[in-house]
Design a binder for these strands. Structure first.
Lengths: 196, 196
DNA sequence: GGTTCACATGAACAAACGTTCAGGTATCGA
DNA sequence: TCGATACCTGAACGTTTGTTCATGTGAACC
């Protein structure tokens, strides 16, 4: 084999691992296949990662940070709560479409494998900005009065479901626009003004 | 060991398998553990199921039929589309809470393991009644004009996400009532009457 | 040329897995 | 008591897996 830089080899391994882990799940994924796809020998992987678990964790943490930065980058800019919400949803959906493999992996393995605490923390941090947007919207009079915490949970859960469905089924396409609209105005014709 | 009826043994195996599969996922689940929990020997399992895959499939198919019957039982009764929708959501949420293990298993393994076609068919059949409800609501004037297919997809995806979140996080509790309300009236204060 | 260093290899090992099978046991009708 | 039947056992087998390690190779410096 050609001589390569350590950095390049590591990158190759990470990419291959992301492929294999997301296609097969952690348990079924096998180091030999990752090595093959990365164009390196089995032993080679262990030069860069202590073991399978470390490889997996490293992967997940990288991507999490990435997603988090993406969301942070688009928040705080917009003026109205409606706009903020739209941006929030759009950022997530677009990121998810770009990184299907990561999404699949993350949802598949969430709550089962190691590092559960980190995962819960991650999700909690995802909800926080959403809750803020809703509170802002209520205060500004854009949104109806509601329990911001509950609604944030519902929206986050729905978003997860939408992303999951799109990642799983190629023929499920839900645009940020139509999702935002649905979340904003609901189904009823008269906007449910009879309710509190 | 005590002598048991074949039927009882089979039941024990199915229950144990559901536990183990949903906790560990298909790949990591191991026959010896299932046997232990079921209170039978490894060899014993193979008296009732050809192999691991058949055991898994049998499990999944049983539960799917069960859920399907549940949904079918509560549809068609109600009068207004709003009521129908509420029933639909409630049935799913309640079933999901009762059978967390199955839900976890189903979502975890969807699109990855064998029998993918059956799974897609299952999801398509889930969406159909929902779409009908929406069309009914539009015709009756209860719901705003919208693309019923798209909205059905969004609602189904959201429902999946809500169920997933509740199954994964014990502290995420979303009642059918609050979910229904949210889907019906959305977030905006004025119901978005400016939109088409 | 010799030495050092970073990078790479894949046979070998131990553990864990799904599955098989030769045999064992309780129950019951004859 | 004697099969016959239904139910059950777990050692054994072959395979696959994660991981290790003795060994190899090319480039850079002296």
């Amino acid at each position: 084999m050609n001589k390569r830089s350590g950095i390049e080899s590591k990158k190759r391994i990470i990419n291959a691992a992301l492929d294999v882990f997301s296609m097969q799940g952690y348990a079924k994924a096998n180091m030999r296949e990752i090595a093959k796809i990365a164009g390196i020998s089995i032993g080679g992987i262990y030069l860069y990662f202590k073991n399978k678990e470390e490889l997996y964790k490293s992967l997940i943490n990288d991507r999490r940070r990435d997603l988090f930065n993406n969301v942070a980058a688009t928040s705080g800019k917009s003026i109205s709560a409606t706009e903020s919400l739209s941006n929030f949803l759009t950022t997530y959906l677009e990121y998810a479409l770009k990184h299907k493999e990561f999404i699949l992996l993350h949802i598949r393995e969430h709550g089962f494998s190691f590092d559960i605490d980190k995962k819960r923390e991650f999700f909690r941090q995802q909800i926080k900005p959403l809750e803020k947007i809703i509170i802002k919207g209520i205060h500004s009079g854009e949104f109806r009065k509601c329990n911001a915490k509950d609604i944030a949970k519902i929206i986050m859960a729905s978003l997860r479901g939408v992303i999951l469905s799109m990642a799983l089924d190629d023929d499920v396409v839900i645009t940020p626009k139509i999702l935002t609209e649905f979340i904003l105005i609901g189904l009823l014709k008269n906007g449910g003004e009879g309710k509190k």
